[in-house]
Design a protein around this nucleic acid. Structure first.
Lengths: 128, 128
DNA sequence: TCTAGTGTATAAAGACAATGTACAATTTTG
DNA sequence: CAAAATTGTACATTGTCTTTATACACTAGA
């Protein structure tokens, strides 16, 4: 489980952790039912407080991606566990933001589509 | 100039404004040299403090997208104005995040590429 | 020059993020 | 079954970030 936090990232630490866990789940490296490390262990590895990790776990639980049980650990939830799907617009907004950055960086249409295809391939490499 | 701020967005208001302005610039609706509304006007339209807008303007100036002059207004900078290009990783990170969301929402590869192509087309519609 | 219009600086209030410590639930061990 | 170890949770505290109100400074035009 390779997770890192970047001081200069801008996003709060708990969100960085949550996002990285999401990515691991999306690509299947954390399969359905898999046990996550205890908050203390992950917190120790990252050099942050255990509560910071706990907040990340709870955020993913709220999205239906994790099952967190007091006393026992946290596990990856079933893929169709009753998590409400984000709205169409909710999904498109980050796409638009990312593409805006690429356009402003001067990339051409074909370069952009290639880059996206590239990332998507990497993401789906080991996925469900 | 249609800009809106969303209370429930999570991101700070000044960043929402900055991101929307970026999108307008990327798609050419705010062309090179175009004058931006005064901070007080935009702030009034959005119902926020003028400083909040000013912070957004300054952020874009720091990225080399705007020329802000004390006393005169803010204008869109030349497209190749000495703005340092974000690193490759800096560009890919948002792409990865957006794609992660799409994958977790259950979209298939072809659906994702179609959605991205769709957004990119909209973005490049009137661009430079 | 004066005035209206523009961005800027500063301080204060409130919200948020990260932490330290103590608590509660579960699992393991004997 | 009881005790200990392991795990997540609650809460108060500290510091940082956001947003605001108010006053200031620069520019352009009459």
């Amino acid at each position: 489980m390779h997770i890192t936090v970047d001081e200069a990232d801008g996003r709060p630490i708990y969100r960085q952790i949550a996002d990285e866990l999401k990515a691991l789940i999306a690509r299947g490296e954390l399969a359905e039912g898999a046990q996550l490390p205890p908050v203390r262990q992950l917190a120790g590895d990252l050099g942050v407080n255990l509560n910071t990790v706990a907040i990340a776990y709870r955020e993913l639980q709220a999205e239906g991606l994790l099952n967190v049980r007091h006393g026992a650990g946290a596990t990856v939830a079933a893929r169709d566990a009753g998590r409400e799907r984000p709205s169409e617009e909710e999904l498109r907004k980050p796409v638009r933001a990312a593409l805006t950055g690429l356009v402003l960086a001067g990339l051409q249409r074909t370069e952009i589509m290639a880059l996206v295809g590239d990332e998507l391939r990497a993401l789906l490499k080991g996925a469900k």
